[in-house]
Design a protein around this nucleic acid. Sequence first.
DNA 1: GTGAAAGCGCTAACAG
DNA 2: CTGTTAGCGCTTTCAC
Lengths: 335, 335
Amino acid sequence: MATIYEVSALSGVSKSTVSRVLNDHANVSEKTKQKVMDAVKQLHYRPNSTARSLATNRSNSVGVLVSELHGPFYGDMLTAIEIKLRAAGKHAIIAAGHSDAASEIDGIEFLIERSCDALILHVDAVSDEYLIGLSKNSIPFVLINRYIEEIKENCICLDNELGGYLASKYLIDQGHRDIAYISGPLWKKDAGDRISGHKRALAEANIDFNAQLLFEADFKVKGGCDGMSYFIAQKQKFTALACANDEMASGAMKVARENGIKVPSDCSIIGFDNVFFTEYLYPQLTTVNFPIKEIALMAVRWILKNEYKTKDFNINNVFEPTIIARESVQYLPSK
Amino acid sequence: MATIYEVSALSGVSKSTVSRVLNDHANVSEKTKQKVMDAVKQLHYRPNSTARSLATNRSNSVGVLVSELHGPFYGDMLTAIEIKLRAAGKHAIIAAGHSDAASEIDGIEFLIERSCDALILHVDAVSDEYLIGLSKNSIPFVLINRYIEEIKENCICLDNELGGYLASKYLIDQGHRDIAYISGPLWKKDAGDRISGHKRALAEANIDFNAQLLFEADFKVKGGCDGMSYFIAQKQKFTALACANDEMASGAMKVARENGIKVPSDCSIIGFDNVFFTEYLYPQLTTVNFPIKEIALMAVRWILKNEYKTKDFNINNVFEPTIIARESVQYLPSK
DNA sequence: GTGAAAGCGCTAACAG
DNA sequence: CTGTTAGCGCTTTCAC
C-alpha cells in the first residue's frame, strides 16, 4: 500500500500539501491539486484510515451493537442503518452482545476502543446505571428500543406498552375474553411493557387476569411451541392467544396445527413485530407493526445531528405501534 | 481516556515496560507487573486500539463483507462467524456490499483500510479478476459460496450444481415430469449452478427442458410470487415447482394458495437453503439443506489457520447439500 | 499557497 | 529485567 510519502515524492510537493488536497482544504492552487491527484491515481493511493483516526481522533465510523445478529428483526435494522450511514459517508462497525451483560459491555468497549465516533446500541442485558454512566462519558450514543428516564433524549423506542394493549384490545374487540399470552423473558423491559399493556386491556374490559394463561418464553420459535403445548396440556379454555413476538406466534401456530386446533376458527392468534415472514405463514398472521426501519433510520439521524452536525433533523423519540389485521384473528360471536 | 503515559507515570516505570506487561511479554518482574496493573486499574486504562494497530500493523479484527445484512441466510452466517471469532479473541467488522460491484469493492477497500488482518467475503457482483488480483495482495481472504479455479484454496462453498440436481431429481423420483423452475438472477454464479443441476436431472430422466417453465427472479419472496403468477397465466401444465431458494418458494406457495392451487396435492414445491422459517410454513417446505453455519465456521477456521496460525485445522473447501424432506412435495402416481 | 516540524498512543528493536 | 529511541501514516499549527 502506498503511503502519503510516496504521493508526496511523486508529485513533488510536501505531504502537508498532499494532505490538504485530500481533505479538500482551501488555499491549494489548481495546478498542485492536479499534480497530487495524478500521483494518487498512479499509485492507487488510499489514505490509511487508522493513521488518520489516530491523528484526528475521529474515525467517521459509528459502532452498532445489537443483541443478536440473526433474526428478521435485527437484519432489517442493520440494513437500514448501514445504508443510511453509508449514504452520509460514514461507516458502520457491527458487533453482537448476545443478550449477556458481560458480552454487551465488552462489545461497547470494543467499539469505543476502535475509536468509533458514536454508538447505536440495542442492548437489553446491561443495566440502566451502566448506560447512564456511559452518557457522562464523551462518546455520544443512541439507545434503540429502550427507555431510561435519566437519558431519555438518547432513547428512540416503540411504545411497547401501547403495543401490548392494542393487541389484546383488538382481540377483546373481536369478542374474545379468554386470552392466553406467551411472553418474552420477563426481565427484559420490552417483554414487561408488552405484558403490562396486555393486562391494561384486560382490566379495561373487566376481565380477570388468569395466571394460568400466561407462559413466559424466550422470544424464539421454540418458546412459542412450548407455550402452546403448555396451554393445551393445562386444558384451560382460551379462544385467543397473544404472543409477544411473531417468532413465538409462528411456533404456536405450528403446534396448534399439529394438535388439530384450527387457526383462527378454533383459536385466534396475534403476533408482535410484523416481521417479513408473517405474511407467508398460513393463515397470514395478524400482528402489531413495529416500525423498526423507521426507528433505525431515526437513530442514524440522531447520530448525524448530534455527532456530525450534518443537518438539523427533527428527532422523534417514541414511535407508536399499529395493528396489522390479516387472517389469524377471527370474530367470536358472544353466546 | 487515560493513555499509556499516565500509566507509566503513575506506576513509575517506562511506557515500554507498561506495554510489555499489557502484552504479556516475558521478562517482567512480578513486582513491576503488579505496580503496572494497579495503575491500569486505578486509571481505568484501556489501550487505544487505533494506536496499537498503527504501530503493529495488525488489528486482531477480521472484516466480513456480505451482500446483504438481512434475510435469515446472512443472519445465521454472521452469527456463526461473530461467535467463533470472538471465542478466538478476534473481532468482526461487518459491512454490506448490496450486490453491487462498486459498492462491494468500496466495502472491501474500507475493510482493508481499517487494517483488518484478514477478510471473509460473500460477494457476487465483483469480478473473478478483481478477486484474483486481490489474492496477489498481501491481505489473506476466504471466499464464501463462490468457486474460482485460480484461487480455489481460498474458496469455501456448497456444491450448488449438485443441490440443483438433487432437488429436481427428488421431484422426478416422486413421479413428476412437468417441473417448473424459478431461478435466481442468472448472472449470479450460484443461480447458474443450481439451474445447471436442474437441467442435468431433467436430461438424465429424458425430460426435455421447457423454456416456458423457467422464470428468472431475484431470490426474494416477491420474485417467487411473480414466478408463480407467471406460470399460472401461461397455462402451462406443471405438477411440481423447484425454486432456487426458500424465500421464492414461500412466495410461490402464497400465490398458489391465493389461486386455489393446493400444495402439495395440486402442485409440489421444493425450495433451497433450508432457512429457519421453512419449518413454519404450511405445509412445511421440503428443501435442500445449505449448511451455512458449518460453512461460516469453516471460513473462520481458515482465517485462524492461515492468518493467526492458531491451530492447524483441516480445511474442507466444498460442502455437499442434502434433501430435507418435509411436506410440500407429494408422490405423483404415473398414469 | 506551501513546507517544516511536532505529535496522535502505541510497539519494538537496541542497549545496558 | 528495564529504559531509550525510533518510528507506524497521517493531520495540523506555525512560519515563510
